[in-house]
Design a protein around this nucleic acid. Structure first.
Lengths: 209, 209
DNA sequence: GTCTATAGTTAGATAGAC
DNA sequence: GTCTATCTAACTATAGAC
């Protein structure tokens, strides 16, 4: 009778069903966006009934918010991991590779996030937005320090980050266009290996001091 | 009584109202995606009534398809304009600038297109998809020829195009994230000038033979 | 060519039996 | 915990008066 909440202790079956629902919802939301997705689709994809889904989550928005929060966290982690004491070029090149790997392994998360940003980021809390901004600011400071120390070419730190995000996430977000061009069975290990070679070269040439 | 079609002769008032509707629809579709947009929103934005809109267009999908076709055309034009007899690096650098300018001047078109690709390009006709593929293939040939002639660094032509598309369209498609980071009044001439300096440097360093 | 009224669907969410 | 049945709201589209 009492609906489980995020903080309450959960039984094994509760955890399992919540996980099933979130997995199905990630499929649906990433493919159709928030408004384009329906509880019916999530119900069918998960194998649970619609009322049953609403027993585990307060509503459509609550499911979406849960997914979005998880994605934001995994999105920000690699940024914070950039080590200002490490080798400048190698740190950034490693960040590029991490982001590209995320695009390959978690394309649905990338697409859900892209959908959200594309439509104005209305559903991202001010709290999360501020968190993102602070982390970017700290990263920009690291990059500026490296540039000033002559360990990195003099580049605008913000536009460098935009370029890295854009060119790595592109492989997840624009997957349908890439398969349109490279062929149906495109986005396998081989294509990502080629992408890695290309991006590695692009950013090494750009960043060499 | 007889609804105007695309091919039929149109009166001045018909052309004017169709234009008003398409302009309003571009606002709405680019901000909310296809499913997230309603005829009510387009009606309010255009100042026309909902039935009146359906007098000029067969339905919601027809309006969207009209916009999408226009966007695909303007998207492909600059690709075809790359001149294989021109200076290799300068031709590609000019293409980068053209794409960046398109992002600044037509962000709504870019976002509508990004929404469409992101959600699987379901509404782009096979005809248009083939057209895109052929044009990309021709451009890849030009790039390979330049590389073979030593006028361009040896780079994978497809991943070069992906990188250019991603990094230029990013300024339109991820506008809400950019303003989140750079501040509310970010996407003006100054930011685009900085982006141009950055991308110019990035692709010159990459492409120098 | 434009309007009001409304038909016909589909959506999110709830009630209450089991 | 899970189900069937249902409420209410929103949406696309059409009918028919003016």
């Amino acid at each position: 009778m009492t609906a489980p909440t995020k903080t309450a202790k959960q039984s094994r079956i509760q955890r399992k069903n919540r996980k099933i629902i979130l997995e199905a919802a990630l499929d649906v939301f990433s493919a159709h966006g928030y408004r384009g997705s329906t509880l019916d689709q999530i119900a069918e994809q998960s194998g649970l009934s619609k009322p049953n889904i609403l027993y585990y989550f307060q509503g459509k928005e609550a499911i979406y918010q849960h997914l979005l929060a998880d994605i934001l966290t995994s999105w920000l982690e690699p940024l914070a991991a950039i080590d200002s004491d490490g080798d400048a070029v190698e740190e950034i090149i490693a960040y590029v590779k991490t982001k590209l790997d995320l695009s390959q392994k978690h394309p649905r998360q990338s697409r859900l996030f892209a959908n959200e940003i594309l439509q104005g980021a209305r559903r991202i809390s001010t709290r999360s937005q501020d968190h993102l901004k602070v982390l970017v600011e700290e990263t920009a400071d690291k990059i500026r320090a490296w540039s000033a120390a002559g360990r990195l070419a003099k580049v605008d730190p913000y536009h460098l980050l935009f370029s890295i995000w854009a060119s790595t996430q592109h492989y997840a977000d624009f997957e349908s266009q890439i398969t349109m061009i490279l062929g149906q069975d495109a986005l396998g290990d081989q294509t990502f290996a080629q992408a890695h070679v290309f991006l590695d070269m692009q950013f090494r040439r750009l960043l060499a001091p």
